[in-house]
């Protein structure tokens, strides 16, 4: 649609800018363009400038890109389900003051600054009142990952004794990000007689989202075995057997 210049002139509300231009007077689209160019930390800062900017800076469409960029490679459906579980547990705990996890209280107070002490309040009404995003916004998830408060499931490539033979194998694990070192803390689940193992300083390169959305304890049934051709790369699962951690069957005892 093309408007004539005079129509545009009438449409625009920028003519009384003598008192100093504010970014809030910018047309919606222009402000959006600026916000789209801001990295996550700046979006957070902008959200702290005033309520009107906060309303904009918390919207999912601005965070989706950042989420994908930083976390897309290591976050899979399992991690998303885990996040949803966290959110749901927060809901359950809403009426029980003792039970709320500390980190969640902090997240809560961030998004519901005026209402976090009244957790039963209707989130939708609150969001209108204070222009805050729902707790299940992408921003809240991004921040929970970024600050390491949220442990997410992913797979970690093995570095067992640097033996090349095993470096292609990986474990299912629970991970927490450490911003200071740009690396991860890892908790490997207990398997049979093996206790929970932990590792820290695990770099991004050793992570991947599970290629299949199957629990570490279940066998994944491949539906493409008939299509396998010579030269194809295949992955073998050593799951199912609870006596031993998967992925370690062929390592001699002397390695431990």
């Amino acid at each position: 649609m093309r408007l004539s210049a005079s129509a545009r002139a009438e449409k625009s509300s920028l003519d009384d800018e003598a008192g100093g231009m504010s970014v809030l007077d910018l047309p919606e689209l222009v402000l959006e363009c600026i916000l789209e160019r801001l990295p996550p930390a700046e979006l957070c800062s902008m959200a702290g400038v005033c309520t009107s900017l906060r309303e904009r800076c918390v919207s999912d469409h601005l965070w989706e890109k950042h989420m994908k960029q930083k976390w897309g490679r290591v976050i899979g459906p399992a991690a998303y389900r885990e996040w949803q579980r966290h959110l749901a547990s927060r809901k359950d705990l809403g009426s029980c003051k003792q039970g709320k996890p500390k980190w969640f209280m902090r997240l809560l107070s961030m998004f519901w600054p005026s209402s976090w002490s009244t957790p039963k309040a209707d989130p939708i009404n609150n969001s209108k009142q204070r222009s805050s995003p729902p707790v299940n916004s992408i921003m809240s998830w991004y921040l929970a990952l970024e600050t390491g408060k949220f442990w997410f499931p992913a797979q970690v490539f093995n570095r067992e004794n640097g033996d090349v033979g095993f470096m292609l194998s990986c474990y299912d694990a629970s991970l927490s990000y450490d911003q200071g070192t740009d690396a991860f803390q890892v908790r490997y689940p207990s398997h049979g007689r093996r206790a929970i193992a932990t590792e820290s300083g695990v770099p991004w390169e050793r992570l991947r989202a599970p290629p299949f959305d199957t629990s570490p304890h279940d066998l994944h049934i491949s539906d493409c075995l008939n299509d396998v051709r010579p030269g194809d790369h295949i992955e073998i699962q050593w799951r199912k057997n609870k006596e031993f951690p998967y992925g370690l069957f062929s390592i001699p005892e002397t390695c431990y």
Binding site: G20, M21, S22, V23, L24, P40, A41, E42, C44, S45, A47, G48, V49, C50, T51, S52, L53, R106, L107, S109, M110, P113, S114, W116, L143, E146, T147, Q179
Partner: peptide, 22 residues
């Protein structure tokens, strides 16, 4: 940007805590 702060002191403090990393 010449924007006035319209958060209450409590809200501001909460934001500061929560966005600490930023």
């Amino acid at each position: 940007f010449g924007i006035d702060n319209d958060f209450t002191a409590e809200e501001e403090a909460a934001l500061r805590r929560e966005h600490a990393w930023a």
